[in-house]
Design a protein around this nucleic acid. Structure first.
Lengths: 230, 230
DNA sequence: GCACGTATTTGATATTTATCAAGCAGTTTG
DNA sequence: CAAACTGCTTGATAAATATCAAATACGTGC
């Protein structure tokens, strides 16, 4: 594929500042793949042969433990994932599956490592990307340890609300069972929590959410101005 | 201070491969500080002016939310911390305090960023360090979401056991209230969980732990060969 | 439009975990 | 040495959350 085919990619922070020749080289060996929904393309424990970049669609990162699995993160376009495993050439800690049909750009890890070694600007961008992801997961861990389930749901809706530029009404980004797992609760509990939120400024009916009273929701979620970046 | 004064530092993976001149430069502006126990030297929301490297002692990273606080991580020597905030020049997401008297090397963030930009080997090492820390916190989040409190304690003891090369008996690394917070439970519950473990291969009496039957402990903690690296 | 499979909701109950309140043990301090 | 303090433990209870079971809604394929 040609880099020019997908303009969003070159403008990604990760690739925006790198040397054009190096960019052409790694994009020359990258390939775009189309995946159907519900396809697991990365399995925990496997080798990270490719850096993945989600162009469009929706991807779920999850971990498996014997019989049960837990959602760790939703990946939205345009965004890279599993950079840490690809860079350190280690085993995946998480599995990944598509939730909707998705287009994903695959960049051979080895090529990426070489490019990072040669191109300081790319190295800096990769470092920044990794640092941001680190900070994000610190936020997730804080959220999990500090809030209980209802509060986590409230905080999640606040984040979505912000991400969608304050849209009064929006759709949940994934099935409720996935959201439930992401928030560390059961689907049954999420359902109940959704009803409860009616008394706290948010009306959730099926997959659609209405933010009626952001202040009330914030009173419940107690977002921290530092760790939660709303 | 001179880098030679503290030989462990130069042999840290982060600094082992960098150019000697650059190393001399950043070490020339670094300074070693001695902190008494229970001193908070980093506050959530502050600016990350220095990369911290714990030379000896013990440091707790924690987050504060209004009145209550939660332990996120124990930092043991010799190890850097808050690299992500120092590199991206952002606010701290966590506070840090010493648990015991500690010696900490402070490297000005700005200097570090400059050195990373100039020295590819240092950049690579920093990237690897960050990637490792990212993977570690993924492990923490997985642990928190997949296991309940007793299982988390069991897994924690297994990790300690491994870290201490399989020593049959060892001391808990910190006060129990800190361990409890780290494991996401109350001190009361930790106390009860410690008693319960007697039936699962570990005897915890006060601060000392005896691993009697690792297999039994593993049956409880169900360590994952991939995500838990025992 | 209907039947089927799947996701969600709702209710009843059980389990896990936290909270509150003492009591106990080890340390520090006067 | 006693008093005060602190951290840990224990017991009783309450709150949060999960589990199980069933009913309802929803979308898909026919």
């Amino acid at each position: 594929m040609r880099a020019e085919e997908i303009p969003e990619i070159s403008s990604l922070p990760l690739f925006a500042t790198m040397q054009p020749e190096v960019r052409d080289e790694i994009f020359g060996s990258a390939f775009l793949q189309v995946f159907p929904p519900q396809l697991t393309m990365i399995e925990t424990g496997g080798r990270a042969d490719f850096l993945h970049i989600l162009i469009d669609g929706l991807v779920e990162l999850f971990t498996v433990d014997g019989s049960r699995e837990v959602t760790m993160q939703l990946v939205r376009p345009v965004s890279s994932f599993i950079l840490a495993a690809a860079y350190t050439d280690q085993h995946y800690l998480m599995s990944a599956r598509t939730l909707t049909a998705s287009r994903i750009l695959l960049i051979p890890s080895q090529l990426l490592r070489g490019a990072i070694a040669r191109d300081g600007a790319l190295a800096a961008a990769a470092m920044t990307e990794l640092a941001m992801r680190y900070r994000n997961i610190v936020r997730s861990l804080t959220d999990m340890k500090m809030r209980q389930t209802l509060e986590r749901l409230a905080n999640f809706l606040l984040l979505e609300h912000t991400r969608l530029d304050g849209a009064v009404q929006f759709q949940l980004p994934a099935e409720k069972r996935v959201i439930a797992s992401l928030l560390g609760m059961t689907a049954e509990n999420l359902s109940r929590a959704c009803s409860t939120l009616a008394g706290h400024g948010a009306i959730v009916s099926g997959p659609t959410v209405q933010i009626v009273d952001r202040t009330a929701l914030e009173a419940l979620a107690r977002p921290d101005p530092v760790v939660d970046r709303h």
